[in-house]
Design a protein around this nucleic acid. Structure first.
Lengths: 189, 189
DNA sequence: TGCGTTTGCCTAAAGGTTTTAGGCAAATTA
DNA sequence: TAATTTGCCTAAAACCTTTAGGCAAACGCA
């Protein structure tokens, strides 16, 4: 009987594709087994359980995002850099809605520490070099930028902006203008 | 045989409590039936299916949030109003994590239109009366504020801010300062 | 090349969730 | 009190998760 050539890596990758196709909450070991034409129980040799698969997909997504972000930020500063980083999140979420959903799951502390999470924070912090913020405020600004990008992408993707004019193609650049202005004139404590 | 006195209303309310206790994604008709000491099939007389229940919980959460927001905003303007609205979302998410998660689900257009979603947008827009923005930018600002509040609450609740100092008790007021400053000095197109 | 060991995928089985169909009895109304 | 509605029931099929134990393919080494 020929072997299917399963590995944790391949399962994770296929799980991510499945998530993009049918939604992250519908990623199931059954569906994955079907995709490899294999018995469900066989997957348990490569993945601890279905939760384990989900966190692996989440880590994959966080990593892919960090790679794209690093790439997009190279050689950019100021508003350009804001547009680049925000654009990475926005485009990724549109291209890979399932992976994006995966990237939103809460990870336990140990897993989170080993994730690309910190890299995201550092990439965001790199943008601040183009502005002039004192140290405690840099962290606050990193968190604010993360909140805006994350929130905007989720609301836009969730359709929250669909019921009012103008459409988000108009709003997005103005949000970037606003963030740029805010960082240039950051209020003192 | 005594009746349990099920109604759609009671099921929705109990489902919301269950969500807060065990997490929104673990709200199941089985668990709900157990809670009422009733057979699962009995629930189908009051709720179309498990997705229907989830949607109802989402609508309940959006409504409760809108009520709290309207209450908190009464008589406030400027930074005070920003703090009040943001505080409502933040506190609600902490008190009712399951309901908050429910409020994030994507609703189909018809359901969304009948939800408290528009009220949220209008309450946010009311805050802008304390500032001075031309019309197209008001919508952009509403979306920006929604993004920040939504994103901040989700990241904070998801533990994304746990791995860096200072803690979010320091960051939150500075974020409000920043938003206040931004709205007072909104950049021109 | 052949032998032993590891590893990959299998069958079997138990337990939980979702949903539909059809039935009896309690509550409501006339 | 009789007729009707309504509430909750049993039964059953379909799907997902997880564990246990087994056989055969692939690999490592003499």
């Amino acid at each position: 009987m020929a072997r299917a050539g399963l590995t944790t890596e391949r399962l994770t990758r296929a799980g991510a594709e499945l998530a993009d196709e049918v939604g992250f909450d519908r990623v199931t070991l059954s569906a994955l087994a079907r995709r490899f034409d294999v018995q469900v129980a066989s997957l348990y040799a490569h993945v601890r359980n279905s939760g384990d698969l989900r966190t692996r997909i989440a880590l994959l997504a966080l990593d892919e995002l960090a790679v794209r972000a690093a790439d997009a930020l190279a050689g950019r500063a100021g508003r350009d850099a804001l547009a680049a980083l925000g654009g990475v999140y926005r485009d990724y979420a549109r291209e890979h809605p399932g992976r994006w959903a995966a990237a939103q799951v809460r990870l336990d502390p140990a897993t989170a520490a080993a994730s690309a999470g910190r890299r995201h924070a550092e990439l965001t912090r790199a943008i601040l070099r183009g502005y002039d913020l004192p140290e405690p405020d840099q962290t606050h600004a990193v968190r604010l930028l993360g909140s805006v990008f994350n929130g905007y992408v989720n609301l836009e993707l969730g359709g929250s902006f669909d019921h009012s004019a103008p459409d988000t193609a108009q709003t997005w650049p103005r949000v970037l203008d606003a963030l740029d202005a805010l960082l240039r004139h950051w209020p003192a404590s």
